[in-house]
Amino acid sequence: MIHVLVIGAGAMGSTHAAAYADMPNAYLAGIVDTDAGKGARVAEACGTSSFTSYAKAMEALDRVDVVDVCLPTPLHKKHVLQAADDGKHVICEKPLARSLADAREMIDHCRSRGVRLFVGHVLRFFHEYAHAKRLLDDGVIGNPAVIRAGRGGGYPIGWQHWYSDFGASGGITLDAMIHDFDFLRWCFGEVERVYAKGLHGRVHAQLDYSLVTLRFQSGAIAHVEGTWSHEGFSMNLEIAGTQGIIGYDSARDQPLLSFQRGGHAGGGGGVPVPESPVEENPYFQELRHFLNCIEQDEEPIVTAEDAYEALRIALSALKSMETGRPVDLGAGAADLSSKGVIGS
C-alpha cells in the first residue's frame, strides 16, 4: 500500500484524490489546500483528511510515500524540492516547470535525493490517444506524414486567475499544448524545428490562441492548435500516413451528450454536457501506472526527461512567437535565450 498526499484541491487535485481513493494499492493519506473549505470538501468526498499546508500534513501524518503536486505551475518547484528533501517520491502535474533551468534542477534534485519523479502527461493514458499510437505502431496507416492536433475551449479562470499571468502559466502553449507536444514526440520521435504564432502580446483580452508547426527529424510535419478563445472543451487528432488516416475529434465523436433544460419548460438556458465514460479514467490509469513503477522499480511510459523535452518544445514555440523565427531543437539547444533561433 502506497500512502499518497495530494497537494492542491483544484480540478486536477480532486481528480487525482478520487483516483487514489479508488485504487486498491493506494492509500489517500490526505489533501492539502490553502483554502480550508475547498480542501475539506474534497477530503470528505474522498474519505480522507485535509490540511492547509504541506508542513501541517507532514506533521500530522504517520506515513507519506508519495507527494502528488497538483498546483499552479509556478508553485511546482518549491513543493517538488521540499518533497524530495523529505525523501518522498513525487508526482507533479504538467508542465513540470515554467523554465528549463527549473525543470532540470527539479529532476536532478529528485535523483540526488534518491526519489522518483513522475510528470502528469496524462494524454498518453487517454484511451483514444493510446489506441491511435497502437494503430500507428502496428503500421495501419504506413509512414506518418502530416499530423494535426488541437485542444482547447474557454479561457480558464483557475486559482487567483493565475492562467492569465503569462509569466506564470505560459498561456495555452505551455499549459495545455504541452500535452500534444509530449504525445506527438512519443509517436513521431524527436522534433527538429518549431515555428509558432500566437495571440500573446497581440491582444489585451482574456483570449489565447496558438498555432504551432513541428518538424520532426523523421520529416513528418505536425500542426498543433491551442485555443482559449472558443466555447466548450474539445480536442482532436489526425494522422495522415502513406497508407491511411487516423482521425479523432471529441467535438464530433460524442458517445454521450446530456442537456438539462433551464428554468422554464421547453426553454434553453442549459448547455450540452459531453461525457466519455470508461471503466478506468485516464487519470486513474496514469496514477496507478506511476505507483506500480514505484512498487516494481520500473521505468514509466512517460519519464521526467520526456516532460523536460515536452517543455523544451513548448518554450521553443514561445521563443518562435517572440522572434518570428523557427527554433532549432536539434543541436542540443537547451539554451532558449537566442542561440537556438535559426538565422539569428
Binding site: A145, V146, K197, L211, A240
Partner: peptide, 19 residues
C-alpha cells in the same frame, strides 16, 4: 504560417493528404 500586414496570423494546411 502567414503573418498579415494588420497583425492577423494564420496557418494553412495545403497537403495532398487525403487518401
Amino acid at each position: 504560417s502567414i503573418e498579415f500586414d494588420n497583425g492577423v496570423f494564420a496557418t494553412l494546411d495545403c497537403s495532398w493528404s487525403r487518401n
